[in-house]
Design a protein around this nucleic acid. Structure first.
Length: 263
DNA sequence: GCAAAATGTCAAG
DNA sequence: TTGACCTTTTGCA
């Protein structure tokens, strides 16, 4: 589930749901019992997303740092919905929110918050992020562009789905050395990140296929029709019909179309 | 019904 | 580059 769009959407939804009053916090799993007790009966003051990191600030400057990792989920439930014993944290406002399988769920001091965001590259979903910072992170980098796009210190919030889809949409081969991209390509890559991630927040899912290619609106698309290349190895490219290929880059599968994406 | 994979990251070899 | 982490979902019998 979680690339940057998921976390930014969560950040908004949590604030509108829990921001009104005092929050009740528990840890049905028990593993975060101490932290939950410290948050309990406090007010949610701010909710911020930086790339794939979520920071909830409660009264008295208590900062809760959450990172979902690969398998974590943070989902709204009806108040009467009983939490399973895998729920690390349950927050209760106008709805209940159940956090399961997070990579990180901890109360942190302000210095650590600053350190975490300092290590991140520009986040296309944050105001004030500049494409020049993205571009300067890639100068002199011979690493394949598909590897750079997963590097959170280069661009924060892009994950394995978006990297493959962005490169397809711009006709860029995943193995192209990062430093070989033209200024125009870099600018386009940044602009595409901004528009795609924003759409991801709006729809609360990743849909990259255009209306012309799909013949319908994004909201009505079936999951398997929403993407151009991700997890489509061996299937025909939606643009040219040639077989989608897959390779390992940065330890993760990366899909591309050899005809649409030139080296 | 069970194994494998999953939109992620870090530490160890 | 590989394994570990943590849980749910998917794919295959």
């Amino acid at each position: 589930m979680p690339e940057g769009h998921t976390i930014h959407r969560l950040s908004k939804d949590l604030l509108s749901d829990l921001g009104a009053g005092v929050v009740k916090a528990t840890s049905p799993q028990g593993r975060f019992a101490h932290g939950a007790a410290l948050i309990n009966k406090k007010t949610l003051v701010t909710s911020e997303a930086w790339g794939k990191h979520l920071f909830l600030t409660f009264s008295r400057e208590t900062i809760l740092h959450i990172h979902l990792g690969l398998i974590g989920k943070f989902r709204p439930q009806a108040l009467e919905h009983e939490p399973s014993d895998t729920v690390r944290l349950r927050l209760e406002g106008s709805r209940a929110w159940h956090l399961t399988g997070p990579q990180k769920c901890a109360l942190i001091p302000k210095e650590e918050f600053l350190r975490v965001i300092d290590d991140l590259g520009p986040d296309p979903l944050r105001r004030g992020s500049k494409w020049e910072d993205f571009a300067s992170g890639l100068t002199n980098r011979k690493t394949p562009i598909a590897i750079s796009l997963l590097d959170q210190s280069i661009i924060a919030g892009v994950g394995n789905v978006y990297r493959a889809e962005f490169l397809f949409l711009l006709g860029i081969h995943p193995q192209r050395p990062s430093c070989d991209l033209t200024k125009t390509e870099l600018k386009d890559l940044w602009k595409l990140s901004v528009s795609q991630l924003r759409q991801g927040v709006r729809l609360n899912r990743i849909v990259t296929v255009s209306q012309e290619d799909s013949g319908t609106t994004p909201g009505r698309l079936k999951p398997k029709d929403a993407l151009y290349v991700y997890k489509r190895e061996g299937r025909p490219c939606r643009r040219c019909g040639s077989s989608i290929r897959v390779t390992k880059l940065a330890g993760r599968s990366c899909w591309w179309c050899d005809r649409c994406q030139r080296r």
